[in-house]
Simulated assay, not measured.
Amino acid sequence: MELTAIRTPYLLLDRPRMLRNIHRLQARMDALGVVLRPHVKTAKSAPIAELMCKHPLGPITVSTIKEAEYFAEYGYRDILYAVGISPDKLEPLAALMHKGVKITVLLDSAAQAEAVLAANQKWNTGIRAAIELDCDGHRAGLVPGDPDILVIARQLHEGNALAGVLLHAGGSYHCETDAEKAAAAEAERQAAVSTAESIRAEGMQVSMVSVGSTPTAHYAENLEGVTEVRAGVYVFQDLVMAGIHVCALEDIAIGVVATVIGHRPDKGWILCDAGWMALSRDRGTAKQAVDQGYGVVTTLDGEVYPDLIVANTSQEHGVMMLREGSEAVLPDLPIGTKICVLPNHACATASQFEEYVVSDDRHTQATRWSRINGW
């Protein structure tokens, strides 16, 4: 089927670009001698996860119970649920353990550790937990050196449930220079390794020292002491990653294909049928040096229209216009023209769709790959 014949908006996946992204990071992890545990929350699709993983059983990272159950059905047997655990999530995870899936959860409090130990006793499982660390003030976790780390580690150790430590250098998403991203990666590594060593010094075993974000994974120069790296958005890349120079626009593997449905010459607008329901409301580039609106507009073949962005949206309308201050000429896009919008945040945009339209050449539809949404 010709791509132009598919009803818009739809989510186009450029398979060659995706494969280059996958191979680029895997080669880097291989060179640094560390296991890559892909975060499948970006793709949420078994055919894509199969390409991301070196081994069919994993390891993988998930962010929802639904993802854990879905990927377990496809044979993955080493799953890290990398969102702070709540007690109500433990029963379905215990059920997966009884199906032969190794489950590791994430926590940063004694109350969560107590819940994990109680669940293991109640359902006769061996769920293990990693202690979440905060290396940059980005989100959850305990600051390295916090005495609660050793208290929780001892609690888990005595219950045979201590996996190790985990952190996510989310602050790296604001690092523009290569030196800044490399420094963030080293700070992430040092926080993880030093904390693991402090736990080991108390006579406890730490098998997992897990770090990761797409920027730090690409710019880490030394991963000594780290057992695994997690990353997810690298599989598709997006405008946020391009804005901090982790990738180029030409590396972004997904886009929303839309149709031109109107013009407002008096305002310099071109309207398309992809609003925030298709593009998402994520405005991740708004605080970057170049604000990309709701997405950069390209031809269906992937050629970028100079300075043309989706500047505004309503539910089912996208308003395309030249970015402020541009000297480019608004392109002539007649009614019915198909365009493609590159996403600010690949995870958010992909979550608006139930499937990928996968193409090797952007002219013929190779196949459709399903994905899951929800929790």
Score class of each variant (00 low, 15 high):
5 A>E: 15
11 L>Y: 12
12 L>G: 04
17 R>T: 07
17 R>A: 14
22 I>S: 03
23 H>S: 11
24 R>T: 13
27 A>P: 00
32 L>E: 03
37 R>N: 05
43 A>Y: 02
43 A>D: 02
44 K>F: 03
50 E>W: 11
56 P>V: 04
57 L>I: 14
61 T>V: 15
63 S>P: 00
64 T>Q: 10
66 K>C: 01
67 E>N: 02
68 A>C: 06
68 A>N: 09
71 F>R: 08
72 A>R: 13
75 G>P: 08
75 G>M: 07
78 D>K: 10
82 A>W: 04
83 V>E: 13
85 I>M: 02
85 I>S: 03
87 P>A: 07
91 E>C: 02
92 P>A: 06
97 M>S: 14
99 K>D: 14
99 K>W: 06
100 G>Y: 07
106 L>G: 00
109 S>Q: 06
109 S>T: 15
112 Q>W: 09
112 Q>T: 11
115 A>L: 13
122 K>W: 04
125 T>L: 12
126 G>I: 01
127 I>Q: 09
130 A>I: 05
130 A>W: 00
132 E>L: 08
133 L>F: 06
138 H>A: 15
139 R>I: 06
141 G>W: 08
145 G>Y: 10
148 D>I: 02
153 A>N: 07
158 E>F: 00
162 L>P: 03
162 L>S: 04
164 G>V: 06
169 A>L: 09
170 G>V: 09
171 G>H: 08
172 S>P: 04
173 Y>F: 15
181 K>M: 13
183 A>I: 09
185 A>C: 04
187 A>W: 01
189 R>M: 02
190 Q>F: 03
191 A>E: 03
198 S>Y: 01
201 A>L: 12
206 V>I: 05
206 V>Y: 01
216 T>E: 11
216 T>A: 10
217 A>K: 09
218 H>L: 15
221 E>P: 00
221 E>W: 01
226 V>E: 02
227 T>P: 09
230 R>K: 08
231 A>V: 02
232 G>F: 10
232 G>L: 11
232 G>R: 11
236 F>Q: 10
237 Q>K: 14
238 D>T: 00
245 H>Q: 12
245 H>L: 04
247 C>W: 03
253 A>S: 13
255 G>P: 03
265 P>N: 07
277 M>Y: 11
277 M>N: 14
278 A>L: 06
286 A>W: 13
288 Q>W: 11
288 Q>D: 06
289 A>C: 05
289 A>N: 12
293 G>Q: 12
294 Y>Q: 05
296 V>Q: 12
300 L>P: 04
300 L>H: 05
301 D>T: 14
302 G>K: 12
303 E>V: 13
308 L>H: 01
313 T>H: 01
314 S>D: 10
327 E>L: 10
328 A>F: 04
329 V>F: 01
331 P>C: 01
335 I>K: 12
337 T>V: 07
337 T>I: 08
338 K>W: 00
340 C>S: 10
340 C>K: 15
347 C>H: 11
347 C>S: 13
348 A>L: 14
350 A>P: 08
350 A>Q: 11
351 S>R: 10
351 S>T: 10
355 E>A: 15
355 E>K: 14
355 E>M: 06
360 D>I: 01
370 S>D: 14
371 R>W: 02
373 N>S: 13
375 W>G: 12
